[in-house]
Design a protein around this nucleic acid. Structure first.
Lengths: 242, 242
DNA sequence: TAGATTGTTAATCGATTAACAATC
DNA sequence: TAGATTGTTAATCGATTAACAATC
């Protein structure tokens, strides 16, 4: 085993690190497995999964290796075993409570994502600075004044914070979260946060994502031009060549 | 130059492909440059950028290479030149019109993201199936019946579609978008879409992203345990080791 | 001049893909 | 048995990081 896929825990045991790309694919596999189950199957092969998700079966197999469920040649994996294994591996059985700050439209949207709970995340309370929002309930969750966050986070041992405030306010919110002992921040504000090393930040920056989309679009347009019947807009699209 | 970073356009000219990781960092640089400008600077070095964003200066330099703006040793880049170069390169000067389908909370949130327009994306109209929503205006944009999408998309030459409907409805919406000639889909529904090859799909799957966050959290918790004063919750966190 | 920084090439690292033996 | 599929090792590919000459 490659040394870089291992990490020593304080107690000396080995912690296996799964590559992030792999990790982001596992929920897709789980989703497919649930469908596959509904279709009446009892077993599943990497070929089945890869066909639906348009992934190389070898990659699927490699990914599933981390989950630690054994398959059988010519048969594949027992569906129930693999589903359970994925859930266990992804930690979906142990629900983490989370605080959300910023009861605007993005915040409300996330508060309404019911399936987060099935994926180990339970947003228990929302916070906001706006007196007009405080006291309200959004999707069944209370909106509390921001100032109460640090104390409550400590008392309730909250480890995850979600930031859905405007960019200008995000750093101050992050500081409060750190003060409250929060260890992971899911940041939807378009700004890079500065936090102590022990706090991990997971950025969901839609503007960066949009840049990816735009380039993919102009690449396909230049490679596979539009269907006839369109007036070409090609000249309005940057060429990305120098 | 590596062959794999090139792609031939139909007219035979060369299209340079920028790695996606690089592309997603460019907006961060742009954002920093705007701040740096406000602070009164006229030039900027890769070291300055890397310091703020916590990135290797070499990587920043490599990234900026694709933008095609020349810097000067010991001085850095002329701030205005680099900002302009980034905007031009990212295509932020050529606004693409987009349709959004699904006027729920996530859809509303995106309709309210004003800065998308500065990044080349203008959501011009929203669509929904729900008669209760049709006819309303959200953040100044009309909500039209879904059935009108294909015709309007063709007539208005819309190339980008945004999907913010529940997973069950997403594939049907994608089909309508394809029918309307849309070439790029920004998909916020937690499901993989099946589309013709000429249509690119950019998935914004929060459940997959959450999996990344959870693992990062349990990794740090096992590496850097909680501050004292906390009752350890370590046993409730999956070990990810086999 | 000295030294910081660019531009560019080479080395490293990590993830994907290919190859293939084992096996049901 | 034959052949599909797993498990695993090796090869490839692409992105990051290091090295270093050029230069202002």
């Amino acid at each position: 085993m490659n040394l870089r896929t291992q990490l020593k825990r304080p107690d000396g045991t080995i912690l296996k690190i799964v590559p992030e790309p792999t990790l982001k694919r596992l929920p897709l596999y789980h989703r497919f497995l649930k469908e596959w189950e509904l279709a009446g199957h009892k077993t599943v092969s990497c070929t089945d999964i890869g066909r639906d998700l348009d992934l190389d079966p070898t990659q699927v197999r490699k990914d599933l290796e981390s989950v630690g469920v054994a398959g059988r040649p010519r048969v594949g994996y027992i569906l129930a075993q693999l589903t359970d294994g994925l859930e266990k591996f992804l930690g979906w059985n142990n629900i983490n409570d989370a605080f959300l700050v910023g009861a605007g439209s993005m915040g409300s949207a996330l508060l309404g994502y019911r399936k987060f709970e099935q994926c180990g995340l339970k947003i228990v309370t929302a916070f906001d600075q706006d007196p007009a929002k405080i006291g309200a309930k959004i999707h069944g969750k209370h909106v509390l004044p921001l100032a109460k966050l640090p104390g409550l986070a400590r008392r309730m041992q909250i480890l995850i914070g979600i930031i859905t405030v405007p960019a200008e306010a995000a750093q101050a919110v992050a500081d409060l979260m750190v003060e409250g002992g929060i260890r992971a921040i899911w940041n939807f504000a378009p700004i890079r946060l500065h936090t102590p090393e022990r706090v991990i930040v997971h950025n969901e920056d839609l503007y960066c994502s949009l840049a990816g989309l735009s380039q993919k679009l102009s690449t396909t347009l230049q490679t596979t031009p539009q269907e006839s019947g369109f007036k070409s807009k090609a000249t309005t699209i940057p060429s990305h060549s120098n």
